[in-house]
Computed example of a mutant assay.
Amino acid sequence: MTPAINVAKKAKVAFNIHQYTHDASADSYGTEAAEKLAVAESRVFKTLLAKTDKQELVVAVLPVSHKLNLKSCASAVKAKKAVMADVVEAERATGYVVGGISPLGQKKRLKMVIDQTAKDFETIYVSAGKRGLEIELSALDLASLTGARFADILAS
């Protein structure tokens, strides 16, 4: 069990766990998850961390097939701009390793923004806290469990 799965269990939300054998040579963790689980990339969401001009870490959850619009992400949390967070800082704040960072069960409660396209699906897939492990749940449940807000954070 990972902290992410424990959060979903404790909250008694509907979820499914999907496991696959992670290939260490994969170029993209998210694309690998979509391919191995035979799920459209638009339903598999990655978890990225950005740092705002206010020196706050922000969690961005967006489809693996897209890039993060850092300005939109910053705007969603009332900051002027943001840059991608340092890997070590992201791992320290979340308690997870890159490629397995889940939006659920992080060590620190950070501001979180989920791309609004997540609401287009009955369920989405996000990391369950380790490479090769995904949790499928509704975007509304994910937002409720994390205190996230929805916004358009995709780069054009």
Rank of each mutant, 00 (worst) to 15 (best):
D27H: 09
A11N: 09
R92A: 15
V83Y: 12
I101V: 09
L104I: 02
T21W: 05
K36I: 06
V61D: 05
A33L: 06
E136Q: 06
K36E: 08
V77P: 05
V83I: 12
T123V: 08
A93L: 03
A90P: 10
A148H: 04
D115P: 01
K78H: 12
F15Q: 02
A34K: 05
S25Y: 10
T31H: 14
Q116W: 09
L154E: 07
Y96R: 02
L70A: 15
L133K: 04
R131I: 00
V61W: 08
P63R: 05
A8F: 01
M112T: 03
T47W: 04
D152C: 11
S28H: 10
P63L: 06
T47S: 09
V77R: 07
A11I: 06
S75M: 14
G132V: 01
E122S: 12
L62V: 14
A143M: 11
A38F: 06
A33E: 01
T123I: 03
L48W: 01
A34G: 08
R149I: 15
E134F: 06
L49F: 13
I135A: 03
K51R: 15
V87F: 13
R131G: 00
A155Y: 14
D152P: 10
D141S: 14
V61H: 07
A74Y: 13
R43S: 12
A24G: 05
L68E: 06
H66I: 05
A93Y: 03
R43P: 03
L37F: 09
I101R: 02
A76H: 07
G147N: 01
K36D: 04
R109P: 07
P103I: 08
I135V: 14
V61I: 15
K67F: 13
Q116H: 15
S65C: 11
V44C: 11
E41L: 11
V97E: 08
D27Q: 13
L49S: 10
D120N: 12
D115V: 00
V77T: 12
L62N: 07
A14T: 12
L48Q: 02
E91H: 09
Q55V: 13
L48M: 09
Q55H: 15
Q106L: 06
D120E: 12
A143P: 07
A76K: 05
E91G: 11
L62P: 05
Q116G: 11
V64D: 07
N16H: 13
C73T: 04
D86T: 13
Q106R: 10
F150L: 10
T146W: 13
R43Q: 15
K12H: 09
K78N: 13
E35M: 08
D152Y: 13
G129R: 05
K119I: 05
E91T: 09
N6Y: 02
S75F: 14
I101D: 00
A33R: 04
L133C: 04
L68S: 07
P103N: 10
L110Q: 01
S127P: 02
